[in-house]
Structures are given as C-alpha cells and as structure tokens.
Design a binder for these strands. Structure first.
Lengths: 232, 232
DNA sequence: CCAAAAGTGTTGAGCTTACACCCATGT
DNA sequence: ACATGGGTGTAAGCTCAACACTTTTGG
C-alpha cells in the first residue's frame, strides 16, 4: 500500500460519556485514574483508535470493556481537536455519549476499569477538556430526548410511566404534569402494556410497559414526540 | 514533550460539504479532481489536518481556500472512520457542512481549486464515502433548518420573504403555503424591514428584510421555530 | 379508614391550517 | 386592463396546559 506524502499522522482517542439513571438522578460512569498522566484524578472512559479497527468498532470495544454490555445505544457528539488539549502529545478525541440501563451493566467490568457511578450534579472536576465534553453531551441528551424517544434506553426492559416521568424530570431538572405526561407518552403508541404491575410499590401498583421496538424504529425520526413543558 | 507509548498514529483529513442556493435549487460546491488518486472524478473539498493547527482552524482554512470567505457558518457532522474508506492509506475524515451565500463567494478561489457549483439533485457520483457524507449532510441540514433559523446563511444580507420561502421549499422538496409561511417567519421577530424593495421584479416588488443578528444569537437555541408543513 | 401514589377526564387558550381577497407593477 | 406575484385577514380544528376527581394499595 502506498502512502500519502504527508507526515502529520496524529494519535486518535475516543472518549465516552456514559449516562445512567438510578430512578432518581442522572449518573455518569467515571474513571478514577490509576495510571499516568493525571493519576488519581477523574476522567471519562476512553481509549486509542487502533490502526486495524473501524471507529465504530473501537467505540463498541471501549464501551464493552467498561460495562460488559454489547449493543449499547450511543452516538457521536463531536471530535475535539485543539492542538494542546492533551498535554502529553497531540491527540484528537472523537467523543461519544452512551445511554445504558444502570442495573444491567456488569459491575466487575466497571471495577476492573476503576469506574464508579457519580451523580451528574455532584461530579468532580475532570481532566483535560472532559468537563466541556460532559457539558456538551448533556446539552445533546436534552436536545435529543426532547425530540426523539431515547429515554427508554436508560430504563429496564419493563418500566412504568411514573418511572419514565422521573427520568425526564431528571434530564431537564423540571417537574412535569403527571396527567399530561402520561397522555403524551401513551399517544405515541410506542408503549405496550405487559399486563404486569410494579410489585415494588407500597401504594397503587403502576402498570409495567415495554417498548414497541418495531414502532420505535419506524418513528424514531418522526420528530418532536417529546417536546413539552420541560423545554420552556 | 513525551509521547504515549502507542504507535497507531493516523492521518486525519477534513471534508466539507458546501451548500449554496441560487434562488431555485440547492447547490453543492464540488471538486473536479486534477490530482491523484481518482484524478478526473468528483469529490468534496477536503484537506489534511496539520500537526500545528486546531481542528476548527483547519476547517476554516479549507473553507477559505475554496471560497475566499471567512466567518462562514459551518458545523461538524460526523467523523468517518472505516479502516478502508480511503484506498491509499487509512485516513480518518472529520466531516463538516457549511452554508454560504452563493453570490458572495470568490469565484477565483473556487476556480483555483477546480470547484464548480452543481445542483444537489443532479450531482455526480463522488469518490470514496463522499456520497454517504452528502446524504448525511442533507439530512442534517433538513433537521437543523426545521428547528433553527439557519436558512438565512444561504441568502444575501438583504432578502425577501418569497426568496426565503423558495429556499425552504428547495430544502424540503415541498411546496409551502405563502400566507402561513410569511406569518410564521415574521412572528419570530428575527426579520427587520429595511424599507427597501426588491427592484428586480416584473410585478409587485417584495420587501427586503435583514436578519436581526442580536435576536438571532439569543433565539438560536429556542427550538422549533420552523417546524411546519414541510416536515410532514 | 387513611395516606400516598396511579389512572383518567375536561375545558379554555393558543397555535396551525386551509382558504380568499386586495394591492402593486410592467406590459 | 390584465396577468403575475406579494401582502394581509379569518374561521375551524387541533394540540397543549392547567386543573379535579376516582381508584388501588399497605398499614
């Protein structure tokens, strides 16, 4: 194979913002670094792009190492390319965010990476430009969740409408009207009543729904399902 | 400066989809390659990221070389990273789209790059994965223009509402109702009546407006100004 | 039988749509 | 005066937001 007569080959990293939801708060899966540089500080999960692997494959690899999960929902946010963003060596970072069901992930994988779930609100300072990455990722999550039905990715397979509402309230930091929310979600036709109820309740047990995956695929790009009071 | 003990440094390119509007059709600024590889075929405008320059600086440089313009509206779409996307050597491509006023750009710059304005609809086959890039760029343009007031970037400083409408009709390939469109646009408060009229008209001369740049900045992220009949 | 959470109904306001009429201009 | 395109008005239908009542459950 010939090469281009060009000498500026650059190290390429991938960094991933992993969002989770514990029923009350949005959480981030963050790494406490036990390696240099910046050992002891907090960072996003990342890794280098290998020369033999597609970018998308690398993203899946990094997510798998961190969570033990495959087929995670993720999307690219942006590529960060300031010359001095990494003090060791110039490194481009292709930045992704991922949404996972916090209870489905493999805790051993996380521990092996020295990763912990941290409340988004109380997150520590991160290294390099990772703070900015998280800020942009959160904006994108809010943007996307207002227009497309991606919230489900953060919940278990079977979930109740009140759980979904709490998720949206956590994403936007706003209370939502229970009655309007329920009507809006059901009107999308994306939810299937499983016939089961949430047994972990001290009061009236809520209906457990699951996603109609076929409709979900079809309707994903039909906009503004979820634009709502949350966006004011 | 130390380096990471890691050998996979990769060539990084930038490719840019430049959209223009001639009053009737959406156009692309494409390069007829007079260099190898794929000499004689059509491609997007691109270039390599230099080791001393920020990614954003490189994008501006490439756009300037092509159009002679600075401060162009552009945004990153996605980074393309299939291992074999470039047959010469593995090359990552950070892909952008840009919107320019087709009449403001410097024709000499374009000629120097062997670039031509081509109707989006009749575009030729492009090299590598550039066809896919254009497809995704167009989706993003449609998405973004439905939610944010970016159409103005494709028009001259002073423009009429019928011109703006033709632009939106070209973007979505749908006719729009003249009266509703006008009301919707004016209700945003983004347009300032210049007091002038379009003299190039054989019939009633339309009012020339210009963008209220201050409101434009403020309202840019207040969603769904332009969601409309076009999206059906 | 009471508190707490879940499910459902209604109404008014505001926006969107569909459609009609009038005005300005050049030939 | 007439054809062409630009500007403005209006009424019906629909969606959204605000609010109230009933049901289920455990203690």
């Amino acid at each position: 194979m010939n090469n281009y007569p060009h000498t500026n080959r650059i190290l390429v990293a991938l960094d991933c913002i992993v969002f989770g939801f514990d029923g009350e708060e949005i959480k981030l899966l963050l790494i406490k670094r036990n390696f240099e540089p910046e050992k002891g500080k907090w960072s996003l999960m990342g890794g280098f792009l290998e020369s033999h692997e597609d970018l998308e494959v690398a993203a899946n690899r990094i997510l798998y190492d961190l969570t033990g999960l495959k087929d995670i929902y993720f999307e690219e946010i942006q590529t960060f390319g300031k010359v001095d963003r990494d003090p060791v060596e110039r490194t481009l970072s292709v930045c992704f965010f991922a949404l996972i069901n916090i209870h489905a992930h493999d805790q051993d994988s996380a521990k092996a990476q020295n990763a912990y779930w941290i409340n988004l609100k109380n997150r520590p300072e991160l290294i390099f430009d990772h703070n900015q990455m998280v800020t942009i990722a959160l904006e994108r999550l809010r943007y996307k969740a207002a227009l497309h039905p991606i919230g489900f990715e953060l919940l278990p397979e079977k979930f109740t409408i009140p759980q979904l509402q709490k998720l949206y309230e956590a994403i936007y930091g706003n209370p939502l009207d229970r009655r309007n929310f329920s009507r809006k979600i059901l009107s999308t036709g994306l939810l299937i009543d499983t016939g089961e109820k949430n047994e972990n309740s001290a009061t009236k047990k809520a209906i457990l729904y699951q996603l109609d995956k076929e409709k979900y695929q079809k309707q994903f790009n039909a906009f503004h399902y979820f634009i709502s009071e949350a966006m004011r």
